[in-house]
Amino acid sequence: MCDKIKKVNSWLSTVFGDQPVPQFEVNTRTVDVLYQLAKTSEVRCSDTTVLIDDLKQKASEYQADGAHLQDVLLHSVGLSCATLSKPTADYLSALVDNAMVLGVRDSSLGSFMPALNNLTSELLEAEKSKRKFERELRALRKKIGATLVVRGNLEEDIRKTVRNQAVESAKAEERLLNMDFVTAKVKELSNRRERLEAQLASRNMDKSITHQAIAQLSEEVNALKKEIIPLKAKLKPYMDLSPNPSLAQLKIEEAKRELAALDSELDMMVDFK
């Protein structure tokens, strides 16, 4: 535990340098975590140091190669950077830039050709992917267009349904109001009929003068009138004969009694009303 704490303190001092190390709770978990971080940091720092040394060595090698090539050009060919024309210097600068962009070791044709081939392959793959994406994009646009059409139709159907629902709701409400009115009217008429029936029962009304009885009596009278027509036709030859005085007197008295009975019945009906 003490060795770990010493290792952690040493690593934190190295990381923060002149700045004070922040306070932290010292316990087993925090010490273990910081110890692992310290070990990981040391490994990465070691790898970074090795990489830096390798790059420095390569840089020194490149510098040596560059110096050797300059010496060869200067002594063997008689060329130097100062004696090169501006277009030549521009061509060399472009060649160097291309080599750096392609990531080749040198500017020889054997280094440029594989790099260009790889770049061409990547370009072809990119164009192939582009065409694939364009096809997928066209298909997606068609789907989006169809989806928008379906969405518009659904929205129109929803608006129509809402309007129809509002109309049906208004009709249903109107029918409910009419039903309530009819129910109240039926109840009122039922109560009125009961009151009238009770009133008629209290007055001991004769059922023979009700509308139904009168209508039935009228039908019977019409039937009797139809039956009387042939009888009148049979009696017509006897109408010119002189009547028997005694029989005539009896008929007159009988007719008076029937008339008195009808007058009495008529008076009773008038009084009842």
Rank of each mutant, 00 (worst) to 15 (best):
G17L: 07
E61Q: 14
E188S: 13
K236N: 09
D53N: 14
H68M: 10
H75T: 13
R141Q: 15
E188P: 01
A260L: 13
V104D: 02
G17W: 02
N27M: 02
L137E: 04
I214K: 09
S80M: 05
L266C: 08
N153C: 06
V162E: 14
E254N: 08
R163S: 10
K251R: 07
S246I: 04
R135M: 06
A198T: 08
S85A: 11
A198C: 02
L247Y: 05
K128F: 02
A198V: 01
V15S: 01
S208K: 08
L119M: 09
Q19R: 11
Q249M: 05
S108M: 08
K39G: 03
M1V: 11
H75D: 06
P87T: 11
A260C: 05
M100E: 02
Q70P: 00
L73T: 01
K171E: 12
D157A: 12
P243T: 03
A223W: 00
T120L: 09
S208T: 05
P22W: 01
Q19N: 09
F112N: 01
E254G: 06
G66P: 00
T48F: 07
L92K: 02
L92F: 11
S10Q: 15
L247D: 14
E168T: 05
G103R: 02
R141E: 14
D180S: 15
R175L: 12
D47V: 13
K6D: 06
T14I: 06
F181I: 11
K4R: 14
S129G: 10
R159P: 00
A64E: 10
D271S: 15
M100F: 02
G152Y: 05
I209P: 01
S80D: 04
V101I: 07
K56A: 11
V21D: 00
A38S: 15
D157H: 09
K251E: 07
E220T: 07
Q216E: 10
M179T: 14
A233L: 08
S190D: 14
T83D: 03
K232E: 15
L37H: 06
D97I: 05
R203V: 04
L74G: 13
L116A: 12
V15K: 00
F24A: 04
Q36H: 12
V96G: 09
A213N: 09
L109E: 11
R203L: 15
D180R: 15
I52E: 14
G78D: 07
D18I: 08
I252W: 04
A184I: 00
T210C: 04
S60L: 11
D240G: 07
I5M: 14
L119S: 14
L176K: 13
N117W: 00
V221F: 09
V104P: 01
V50K: 15
L137S: 06
L250G: 03
K234Y: 00
L37C: 06
C81N: 10
S10R: 15
R195Y: 05
L34R: 03
S202E: 15
K207V: 10
A248L: 13
M269E: 11
E174N: 07
Y35V: 03
L235W: 01
K39L: 14
V186Y: 03
L224H: 03
D267E: 07
E127T: 12
K132S: 13
V72H: 05
P243R: 03
L176S: 12
A172N: 03
M205D: 04
A201Y: 08
R135Y: 03
L140S: 10
A67N: 07
D180P: 00
L69P: 00
L176R: 15
V31A: 04
L51C: 06
E265H: 10
A115L: 01
R193W: 05
F112Q: 08
D47R: 15
T40H: 02
